[in-house]
């Protein structure tokens, strides 16, 4: 569904991304991990179409990103960015319905409203439809923003769509982090491809089908969590001593005090 080939990008003299290659297959959940400044957010912005790469190409559904109109692209890929900037007193339902922009007519249809309500339930925010968005807590807002992203590509995921998440669990407590990741995983089960930028190695280990480890703008490990999450790889990626534990088939990392 998503192909990234030889992607390069630089700000001024130093490169931020260099020859990045990876694919996300249909229904696959890929997490991108890396230290601060590794190039994760730049990679996210390029794949979203917010930045133009200096070299390389991004294809979604076999078509180059530039071949899509904004509306076509929005129906195919949905993205949750790090920081929301909305500061008007809209109701939660109206805010989530903004995600249906590329699909809808001048007014939201019944189907749009149903999709928005389903998306809210998916992230544990059912019953919050009439609440004012700006008066929610940071974590609640984050989940509503995620619901808007889910709503953009349909209430329960579908083939030929890509869901992109940049730190979806920021501002979320552990329980709600799992709730957000479960919602994304459910979309992956319905054949939506998911690409998530994460800081939490253990969440990636539990939910991702594959992990891409990014360091200094290059992917140096890509594969199944069990193969990628080794103590050596994590030390290389984050520059921190760590211990790996296994439980229930998942690997968990604990980073040690420096």
């Amino acid at each position: 569904m998503l192909e990234v080939e030889n992607l390069s990008f630089s700000y001024g003299s130093g490169f931020v991304l260099k020859d990045v290659n990876f694919c996300v297959g249909e229904g696959e959940f890929v997490a991108v991990l890396g230290a601060n400044g590794a190039g994760k957010s730049t990679l996210f912005k390029i794949i979203c179409g917010l930045e133009k790469p200096e070299g390389g190409i991004v294809r979604i559904g076999g078509r180059p990103l530039g071949g899509y109109s904004p509306s076509e692209l929005a129906k195919t890929r949905s993205a949750l960015m790090q920081d929301g900037e909305f500061n008007f007193d809209s109701s939660v339902l109206d805010f989530v319905l903004l995600g249906r922009y590329a699909h809808g007519g001048f007014f939201a249809s019944k189907e749009d409203v149903n999709i928005a309500k389903t998306a809210l339930s998916e992230v544990g925010m059912g019953g919050f439809e009439g609440r004012i968005f700006t008066r929610l807590s940071g974590g609640e807002r984050r989940r509503v923003e995620l619901a808007r992203a889910l709503c953009q590509i349909g209430g329960c995921g579908r083939r030929d769509t890509l869901l992109m998440l940049d730190e979806p669990n920021s501002n979320l407590d552990p329980k709600n982090s799992h709730c957000a990741m479960s919602a994304a995983k459910k979309f992956a089960a319905a054949k939506t491809s998911v690409l998530a930028i994460l800081h939490d190695v253990n969440l990636a280990s539990q939910y991702a089908d594959k992990i891409a480890l990014l360091k200094c703008g290059q992917i140096f490990a890509f594969g199944k969590p069990g193969d990628v999450l080794t103590s050596e790889n994590l030390k290389l990626a984050y520059g921190a001593e760590n211990r790996i534990f296994e439980d229930g088939g998942n690997k968990y990392a604990v980073f040690l005090k420096q």
């Binding site: 979203c48 179409g49 917010l50 904004p70 509306s71 692209l73 929005a74 129906k75 949905s78 993205a79 960015m81 929301g84 900037e85 909305f86 008007f88 903004l98 995600g99 922009y101 590329a102 001048f106 808007r148 953009q152």
Partner: peptide, 24 residues
């Protein structure tokens, strides 16, 4: 008035509006 849906999207911020399919 006929542009008001797009105007709603712009209230999200340019990047968010673009990601949701608006011709910002």
């Amino acid at each position: 008035f006929f542009n008001s849906r797009g105007l709603n999207m712009v209230m999200l911020g340019s990047d968010h509006a673009y990601l949701s399919g608006a011709n910002v």
